[in-house]
Design a binder for these strands. Structure first.
Length: 198
DNA sequence: TTGACGATAGTCT
DNA sequence: GACTATCGTCAAC
């Protein structure tokens, strides 16, 4: 399972990369245990034209500076004081674009993920939703800034390409005014491991 | 230094 | 469907 290299993430169109990420595999390796699955839901954020983006209009802070790095870097931050969010930085260095990974369908390490989430049986809420996904994969703040071809955090092609893509507004960005209406959320149609509006 | 507020999830009614 | 836990971030004071 060879990780995708930098070229996959460098293109300027963040929405295109977001779509391409659907069906790819996202995995972490912690304590020698591989966990992860197929990405089923993503959202695109663009620093250049998007009020919902942390880096809108060139805003640069201690938190969001990872977004300005080269495509293929992980951007991890804490939301609501308790949930970690995992993002994929896209575009070239200096352009603050990123894709929020919101949900995946488990493939590897289901038992370990169930334990991390304190669940007894496999059900969508194991990995449907950005905070849930980060908890299931044991994503940590220290993963911020890592390349997505690291030994303990990587994205790979798992050979899935037969599915339809749904599209909608993004979740929880009402504060962004008219940009909250942008159709920058993409998901695998009909897949149960999607957070809302399957 | 301070305080208002989130790219959420789990629990309770 | 409503309520809230919980804390880092950031802009304003």
């Amino acid at each position: 399972m060879a990780p995708l290299g930098p070229e996959f993430y460098l293109e300027a169109d963040v929405e295109a990369v977001a779509r391409k990420l659907l069906g790819k595999g996202l995995f972490t390796r912690k304590n020698d245990v591989l966990t992860g699955g197929m990405i089923t839901e993503v959202e695109a954020y663009s620093g250049s034209d998007d009020k919902a983006c942390h880096a809108y209009n060139g805003r640069l802070t201690a938190r969001n500076r990872t977004m300005y790095r080269s495509g293929g870097t992980a951007y991890v931050y804490l939301c609501y004081g308790m949930h970690l969010m995992l993002n994929v930085v896209t575009n070239v260095e200096g352009k603050a674009d990123a894709v929020l990974i919101r949900a995946l369908e488990p493939i590897l390490g289901v038992q370990t993920m169930l334990e991390r989430r304190k669940l007894k049986r496999l059900e969508p809420r194991l990995t449907a939703g950005p905070g849930a996904l980060a908890a299931a994969l044991a994503v940590e703040r220290s993963d911020d800034g890592k390349p997505l071809w690291s030994d303990d955090l990587f994205i790979a092609d798992v050979g899935v390409n037969e599915f339809s893509v749904g599209r909608s507004k993004r979740i929880g960005v009402e504060y962004a005014g008219e940009d909250a209406l942008l159709l920058r959320r993409f998901f695998v149609l009909g897949n149960p491991f999607v957070s809302k509006l399957r």
